[in-house]
Design a protein around this nucleic acid. Sequence first.
DNA 1: GGGTATTTGTCCGTATGTATT
DNA 2: AAATACATACGGACAAATACC
Lengths: 272, 272
Amino acid sequence: MANPMYRQIAESLREQIESGALGPGQQLRTELELREQYGASRNTIRDAIKWLTTLGLVETKPGQGTFVVQKIDPFVTTLTADPKRPGGAEIAVPGEDGYGEVDRSPAGQKRKLTYSDPQIEIQKADGKVAEHLRVAEGSSVISRHQRRYIDGTPWSLQTSFYPMGFVVRGAGRLIEAGDIRDGTVKYLADTLGLRQVGYRNWITVRSPDMTEAGFFSLPQDGRVGVFEILETAFDQTATPMRLTVTVFPTDRNQFIVNVGEVPAEQLITDNT
Amino acid sequence: MANPMYRQIAESLREQIESGALGPGQQLRTELELREQYGASRNTIRDAIKWLTTLGLVETKPGQGTFVVQKIDPFVTTLTADPKRPGGAEIAVPGEDGYGEVDRSPAGQKRKLTYSDPQIEIQKADGKVAEHLRVAEGSSVISRHQRRYIDGTPWSLQTSFYPMGFVVRGAGRLIEAGDIRDGTVKYLADTLGLRQVGYRNWITVRSPDMTEAGFFSLPQDGRVGVFEILETAFDQTATPMRLTVTVFPTDRNQFIVNVGEVPAEQLITDNT
DNA sequence: GGGTATTTGTCCGTATGTATT
DNA sequence: AAATACATACGGACAAATACC
């Protein structure tokens, strides 16, 4: 009896969930019913439910009840692709490159990627952008931002940064709204002779900010994290030519990295 | 007055933290003091602090107080390396391959990797192992498990799986305790002629289980997630020869993926 | 649309337990 | 041993969101 009562109650409910007695989407008994069932006060029941909530096992809906969470069929993105392909990896501004990529879920369905028109701004490079793009902090950069969806559900938020000098040197369409035909990679090669020869993805996980939580409909308490992937693309002189920051919720995204000779992807059903 | 009081109090404290008025590691005023300061009940103050806790901004210590969390200097691991190098990527059983890898933090220090002796078991392949290793579910596999540390702090938990047939065919040392000289990749090449020509990393984020939370000293409420990286290694016939599952806490780990021609790593100080 | 019952959310006060100093 | 500070648990009251008639 070392454990507090609310944890024991949570454990009891957890077993019911993981054994399948309470299936995904199913409603739990109300707090008042559980209060009688376990002989505890309503506040203690609420502590148990709050615990399960932070564990991501249940969610509460005011006026309705408490429900076992549905597991989301995850999106799978391959981070390694042809370094010279327009757009680089699949995650690299596929929208701007006119690619209607398909993402394959573990269950094997093909999915449809859509994206908003790019929202373009001229910004001062903050510390992170300046360091990865190797420009002076505070210098002007072009920012192209998109919201991206798979089958209509919010998938990722992406922002690409380019040095302002690119526009001066002849790549004026970078600051025009609307997609760039054949993508920015080809456009920069054609106009400035900048060939993308490789890129580096820097993968971190952090808590979502308010904008991200809103766009992805994540719980506001920061329980669900987001991947933040910084992709730095390099030209033939090993100089950074683009920084793309993409944010994905961790609860619905997985990534694949292939190295060396690897057979085509097996479609694997994840039954964790 | 749209927001509940505990959220307003949390917001007030959050601003003090993010503005720097309350520095990392610094102690907040006690619940009783805050109760008078904000004119709320102690339970409401506790709700505000609990909210900040799930946001990962503060931590509470019984008998001591509430403190602003320290940001951890993260470990950075490169997932793309020579596919034929013993051990594959840096994350691939470097311990078993006798590599004393160094990890470079954003701040640029070199760090020392240590690891426990492998703990070896014969197990039945569960669904996940069977599918990635492409063996029948329930067939025997060799499991080699290690705890890995950087500078003495827990870094990752790693388990490698090999088909049991490898031992029958002559790779008997796989089931012996202790490190294998020159690593398992070279050992399997020497004994069975299995050359590792590539590998695939499958990156997911999930909540830690009890064992993991204990080893990494993570809060038990599952607030901090863990990376689970499944590395499947392939031999020259494109057959899976090894599955390595590695678990890293997301609060102290970052990953790098290089594609194409990429300059040597810039040491970047992350001042997010 | 309105009203009512149901269910979770917020807030209070109090008492006692447990960990740390 | 004592003081301090957070943790658990109780009970009660009202608010807010939702569903249903």
